[in-house]
Amino acid sequence: MSANVSIAFTLNGVAVRATVPAHQSALEMLRDELHLTGTKYGCGEGECGACTINVDGSSANSCLLFAADCDGRDVVTIEGLADDKLTERLKQSFVTHGAVQCGFCTPGLVMQARHMLDKNPHPGHDEIKRGIEGNLCRCTGYKKVIEAIAEAGEASNLEDAR
C-alpha cells in the first residue's frame, strides 16, 4: 500500500494531526476521515467546484489537493465559517434570494463567494460570474446565486460606511 504521511495543519482554526495515504485527496480526508461532509464530491476532477475549500487564504478544489500537501497549512471548510460574519451574510443572502435549490453545490459556492469577497468586497455581476465560473449548478441557472453574492457585497458596503 501507499506510503502514509504524518501531517499537522490548522483545520477550521484548530490544530490537527493526521496520517494520510500519500495518494489521498484532501476531499477524501475531510469527508471520510474527519467526517466534515459539508465539502461535497461532485466530479473529483476540479470541474464542478462542489468541493471548494480555502487553503492559506485562497480557494481551491479539495478533490485536486493532495491531503499530504495540507501539512503546515491553514485549511478552512464550510463548517469552519459557521461563526464568520461575512459568511453568515452570504448564507443569509443565498437563502433570501432563492439561490438554493437542491443545495448540493451550495457549500462550494458559498466558499468560493467568500473568497471572492475577500479579494473584491463589492463585485459587479460580471465579476461574480467569472468568480464562480468553476462552480457548476444544475438547478438555479446561477442568476439568483449571482444576485445573492452581489447583495452580500453591497451589504458589506453599507457596513463599511457605518
Partner: peptide, 17 residues
C-alpha cells in the same frame, strides 16, 4: 425563502453520500 435553504447553505444537510 426555501425552508431547507439555511441548512443547505451551511453544509449541514446530509445527502445520501
Amino acid at each position: 425563502p426555501k425552508k431547507d435553504a439555511p441548512e443547505k447553505a451551511s453544509g449541514k444537510t446530509r445527502y445520501i453520500h
